[in-house]
Design a protein around this nucleic acid. Structure first.
Lengths: 343, 343
DNA sequence: ATGAAAGCGCTAACAC
DNA sequence: GTGTTAGCGCTTTCAT
């Protein structure tokens, strides 16, 4: 079923039918009703490719996932982001196009997506310090929104980000309030912009209480269980070991807890762990034996929604002025539920 | 830059240029060389939408992700699958279109994807027992390949699956060989087809050694850390507790280990854990203190590749005969590396 | 070996 | 309010 045959069925011109279906005002309400009824009855859906060609709009948003360093696609956080963005796309009639490329071909991928007209814009993930992708996109004239920020860049650009500085500052303060003086930070890869910001929040909290920053208590790396374990073990072997850990991910926190237990220490008595992830009900804090967590994942999903909404708005309006939005993380510290939640 | 202007530049007709670029034999090699050089120089890429409209092929594969039950998109396994499929798409010039839909709208989503012509076929994930999606797709006439199988279905259909029965049979036998008699299975949701097959493998191994199946030692649920913990704790409190656990996922295994340790038992002395996931170097077995794991994740990626390849072959050939492929899991049991690997 | 012309299914000027 | 016409950028007969 296509527009032409539907129009013939109705004894109308394709134009009128198109106008009726697309909500143009100049069509009479009786006709519109008749048309939409017939369309529904015939299960008519306009051909996407024809529409795209005629309008010059792909009605699709690209997500380019570089694959050689596995830390992006594997990250469950990424899945939540995608889910949030996907919600918005579905509502707005956009397709989400995922492109998996080897790390070194990312630039070419953007260029092709652009010149082939596959997408109207792209969403960029996991920016690194001094990330070059934004300038590339700007010179291509391809609309984009960045999930995160880029510290070492001068021009303004469009982004949505969570307030990582504040989140980690608050988490650190929480541990400080519990009386901890030796707080370790098990961070993500330092080349990632968010890791840098998290560290800044951690340091800011310590500085505001005049606690010296000890480089031995700060590590970084892929946020895996093994990383959490190895780094925590090393730090626990120091002459003056930490009494609390702040980790950047769920898996790191699990590994950290394992190291704590292997060292014969008792979670919630000898050592506290706070991490930047939800789903973490079972990690107990240092004094109250209460679950402690910060809900990144629901925030990430919301970030996905906002990035998508912002990008579509830019595309629809033709506006190329950079816009941005800073979100506060949904942060739950020392929640006083009884037993650790099982979900 | 479009075909017409490129043709004008070359003093050729659009037809010839198109033929040259698309490898048609009737164009002279000199012309072809000239054309491709000019195309490269002008950074010409044919407009995707126009091509799609003209050829009637979307050059895109759809992945529909139902979202209300969170266990699909969140699953890191899913990300690996996507990565594998994405590799193939990139090579073949296909786009990957991800559609996130509320659970109850999945049927409608397929229908629309079909009638709007957005995709040439779809990949289906995580089939449940008596899954209705395959029959729906068959009646729609939309090419598909299923990742997994459907136990309660009579018609034949296209699928790629890992041999879950054998994987769990082998894992169970491994524990039996270590001398365990009370082996617990912490399984995924029983409605999932793969969970049912895994259970079958587990039971088959026990039966072949005349060990009675104890329903108290089999549980199922979302494969989270909390699930692993709660279920293992309950089983360890039994009058006759298990000495080994077979779990269906990394997170469940972590939770299980936590329950073991909370019960004051020693991993690798009192209790063994084997799980169906790689990245598990730190889980020690019952006797040899060696890392034990089965490498699902690399297999999943390979499954993504094979599903994509198979679907594209079906689409290209116009063949609607169901085809299928059973993969053996890359399974590593009792690997004798020294310390637990840190990746 | 190359070109002219039609057409894919839709939208959007421009009439009426 | 509705219809006519001309594209969008490509592929594909059909001529030559």
């Amino acid at each position: 079923m296509n527009l032409k045959t539907l129009a013939q069925k109705l004894g109308l011109s394709p134009t009128t039918v198109s106008r009726a279906l697309n909500g143009y005002p100049e069509v009479s309400e009786t006709t519109r009703a008749r048309v939409s009824a017939a369309a529904k009855a015939a299960n008519y859906h306009p051909n996407t490719q024809a529409k795209r060609l005629a309008t010059g709009r792909a009605m699709a948003i690209g997500h380019i996932i570089p694959i050689s360093d596995r830390h992006e696609i594997v990250n469950p956080v990424f899945a939540d982001f995608i889910a949030g963005a996907g919600e918005v796309y579905a509502r707005k009639g956009y397709d989400m196009v995922l492109t998996i490329v080897p790390d070194d071909e990312e630039a070419r991928a953007y260029g092709e997506l652009r010149s082939k007209g596959n997408v109207d814009g792209v969403l960029i993930h996991a920016p690194r310090v001094n990330d070059h992708r934004v300038t590339m996109l700007q010179s291509l004239g391809l609309p984009y929104v960045l999930h995160g920020r880029i510290s070492g860049i001068e021009t303004s650009y469009s982004w949505v980000d969570v307030n990582n500085v504040r989140a980690f500052e608050r988490a650190t303060n929480f541990l400080l309030d519990l009386g901890h003086q030796r707080i370790a930070l098990i961070n993500g890869i330092s080349d990632m912009d968010f890791a840098r910001r998290r560290r800044r929040g951690y340091e800011r909290a310590l500085e505001s209480r005049d606690i010296p920053i000890d480089a031995q208590l700060i590590t970084e790396g892929e946020m895996t269980e093994a990383q959490g374990h190895d780094h925590a073990r090393a730090m626990l072997a120091l002459p003056n070991p930490p009494t609390a850990f702040l980790t950047a991910s769920l898996l790191s926190a699990m590994g950290t807890r394992r190291a704590v237990e292997e060292a014969g220490l008792v979670m919630g008595r000898d050592v506290s762990i706070v991490t930047h992830d939800d789903e973490l009900g079972y990690l107990k804090n240092g004094t109250a034996q209460e679950p402690i967590f910060t809900a990144t994942r629901s925030s990430v999903r919301e970030a996905g929604r906002r990035c998508a909404t912002m990008l579509i708005a830019q595309i629809d309006s033709g506006n190329r002025q950079p816009i941005s939005e800073l979100m506060e993380t949904v942060l739950v510290l020392g929640q006083s539920t009884g037993p650790a939640p099982s979900r």
